[in-house]
Design a binder for these strands. Structure first.
Lengths: 173, 173
DNA sequence: TCCTGACTATTCAAAACTGACTATTCAGAA
DNA sequence: TTCTGAATAGTCAGTTTTGAATAGTCAGGA
């Protein structure tokens, strides 16, 4: 439901067409939301069916008509409900890709160390990049802060493991 | 591919049947991986087709036969490859559900504050619970540490926002 | 002995998602 | 003026995921 919430949140501000929505999200909110184009159209279709938004054809010059979406009163109600729901509960994040760490002892110790060093570099670069994002206005800044703080946590955790590997010598268990 | 990696990692240690695999994961690794039962069976089927594992019927007493999976040499090779791939790259996590924060200014300031307080409590409880997990052996501990450090980061970030809301008064933008 | 609720084990139809593709416009290079 | 690459706008076939159902076992109580 989070992606529906976001789409509604954007459409509340102004009418937009499909491509515009996905571009905006992928440019500005990629750190939070991964929304593929076909998924966006899928969700928009569903919301049209649910009566949360309407779709109208916009003819402009000779280009093929674009589908412009606007939010309905029911959509606004859904937005209010979803936003409260979203804010009041903490949905624990899943760190699926870090599962490899649990299987680390299947590798020779020095190879494990080398791989993690590489990962550390990528992560550090990403953190630096996130810190370089110019401050956004108002509440959007919260999302950036969020990203930065999680990346920093990830980095110091990874450093902790590398330190332990450096001390411990060969693989554990 | 991460879930396949995990399944292979478990089957390397011992042969297991489907239900056993999902139960183990959902009991011990819920903080990392969300693997629904039907998905597990789907992935296992795929891996059988790929030749990574084999399935054999195990008849035991009068109960309906269970499907026991065992890893093949190709499966072990795939495991080695996937593990290296997984460890060397940092897949940036997406914090989809925190998108509500970006839309916070759609709510009256005191309601926003109240909702976030509620969320803070849930999060603090979760962190406490994670800290109470008894130490695991070897590399599994890394995963627990990971969870704890991210929850802590989340909490202090949320506290930062609450502090700002308390100072700032009414909604921003 | 029969019933009930909890556990074991799996399947299936339907929903959700995405890689790859189609098609158009436009700015600038050749 | 024609071509080309980039941006715009959207669709579709096929894959992946899941809620709900199915079906047997077992322990304990009535």
């Amino acid at each position: 439901m989070d992606r529906e919430l976001l789409l509604l949140g954007l459409l509340r501000r102004e009418d937009m067409h499909g491509y515009q929505l996905t571009e905006f999200i992928n440019r500005n909110l990629a750190s939070c939301v991964d929304l593929k184009k076909p998924t966006a159209y899928y969700l928009l279709d569903k919301m049209v069916e649910a009566g949360w938004i309407t779709r109208s054809e916009e003819q402009e010059g000779s280009r093929p008509p674009r589908h412009v979406y606007q939010i309905t009163p029911e959509g606004e109600a859904a937005f209010q409900r979803l936003l409260r729901e979203n804010l009041s509960t903490h949905h624990p994040a899943r760190f699926t890709d870090d599962i490899g760490l649990a299987l680390l002892d299947a590798l020779p110790a020095d190879e494990a160390r080398a791989l993690l060093e590489r990962r550390r570099e990528a992560l550090a670069a990403e953190l630096e990049q996130a810190r370089a994002i110019p401050p956004h206005s108002g509440t959007w800044q919260y999302v950036i802060d969020h990203l930065v703080s999680h990346l920093a946590a990830e980095l110091s955790w990874l450093d902790g493991i590398l330190r332990r590997l450096a001390e411990g010598g060969t693989s554990g268990e």
